[in-house]
Design a protein around this nucleic acid. Structure first.
Lengths: 93, 93
DNA sequence: TAAATAGTTCAAGAATATTTGAACTATTTT
DNA sequence: AAAATAGTTCAAATATTCTTGAACTATTTA
């Protein structure tokens, strides 16, 4: 399996520069456990296709860790990357 | 004079999600003093118009402090905002 | 084994963001 | 006073990002 993770500052900032992805991150941070893409999508009202797109970008930026189990894909925040680059995370200040 | 500064997480991330603006920030961080837009533009090979656009976004995100003196506009990093939200800043990791 | 479920991929369309050049204001230099 | 310089604004062109639906793979359930 090839490594698709890209730990460039700009990749991370681009990944964070979208409200859908910030919603996802906020959700993952809040629940603080592994959840399926479907659960996140339902909770945040994101379509499957759009979710797939956004989870991919977050994963490529190294901001989430994903694991496929059978039909489902589990995601959780990658707190190593997240805490390294993101401080004072509040969606609204 | 109206306040155009917008301290939202997403505004900051969007401001950081562009290579021209990261170049500008890196430059300002490196020189560590007030410089004119013109100096930055020349050093980084950014056109006046494009520079004007990018400096505006950085200012609106609160990432730089600007001061107009006669013909020239001086800019410097706003380290309060920058240090609050950006840690481990290296353009390439 | 057929139907349902979870997620991906693709191409097209829509929305946003960036660049460009021309015209402009304001200031400084000649 | 004319020319040069520093920067801004605008609208048009271009580039990039995001959303959508259809078709797809793989797995699970009825």
């Amino acid at each position: 399996m090839m490594n698709t993770q890209n730990t460039n500052q700009i990749t991370i900032f681009k990944a964070l520069a979208d409200s859908v992805r910030l919603d996802i991150i906020e959700y993952l941070k809040h629940v603080d456990r592994e959840v399926t893409c479907g659960e996140v999508g339902k909770a945040l009202n994101i379509s499957k296709t759009s979710g797939s797109y956004h989870f991919k970008l977050l994963q490529e930026a190294g901001l989430i860790i994903t694991r496929k189990e059978a039909r489902e894909k589990y995601v959780r925040l990658n707190s190593v990357t997240f805490d390294k680059f993101v401080t004072n995370f509040y969606k609204n200040i």
